[in-house]
Amino acid sequence: MLSKQPGKTPDTYVLPGDEVGISEEYVPGRNVADEEGKLYSLAFGRIQKDDKRLILSVKTGKEKLRPRTGDIVFGQVIRDSKGVQTVRVGGYADKQGDLHEIDFTGLIREPRGRRDDRILPILVGDYVRAKIIREGDVPELGILSPNLGVVMALCSNCRTPLIRDPPGLKCPNCDYKEQRKIASDYGIVLLPREGGVEAGSR
């Protein structure tokens, strides 16, 4: 325990079983138990005191983030098998626009019955912005809106980041031309609440 004294200040770490206060002063909140007038921590985490509502709780920092349908995620395509792309997701923006770090795998399926040349491909190694269209153990992702799709792609020849060359993409190194289902802001990705972070080459 970092401090053994009761009545700890906020931002103090506590361990299970530590005395964190008395029930005359605070109501036990999340991860806090009241035992004979004393409040004990039930988890390893930071004390949070809500002095307005007089609630004392312990925040563990291990609360699992669960992306919901409609959340926007960012990830990299790691596998392409029979029209199903596997994406390793590294971050997601919730509906409030906050960006969170996360680690899970999602799938992008080719729309059924629309397998023709008008559907532009995404390839292994591409970085994509996608929307969660179905939750589950392996969430399904969609990239059909104009702001969704590839935000950075690498040249299939020399792995140099591709630049826009309407109507497609071009490698600045070997001039190889490629097609992708790109997002409208390909090359300059505006991350939510981050004020425009340049992720691509240009």
């Binding site: 361990l15 299970p16 138990a33 988890a43 390893f44 563990t60 920092g61 291990k62 609360e63």
Partner: peptide, 11 residues
């Protein structure tokens, strides 16, 4: 278990 943030009565 404590590291996982799972609430426990005690160690």
């Amino acid at each position: 278990i404590a590291d996982a943030g799972i609430p426990m009565r005690d160690f």
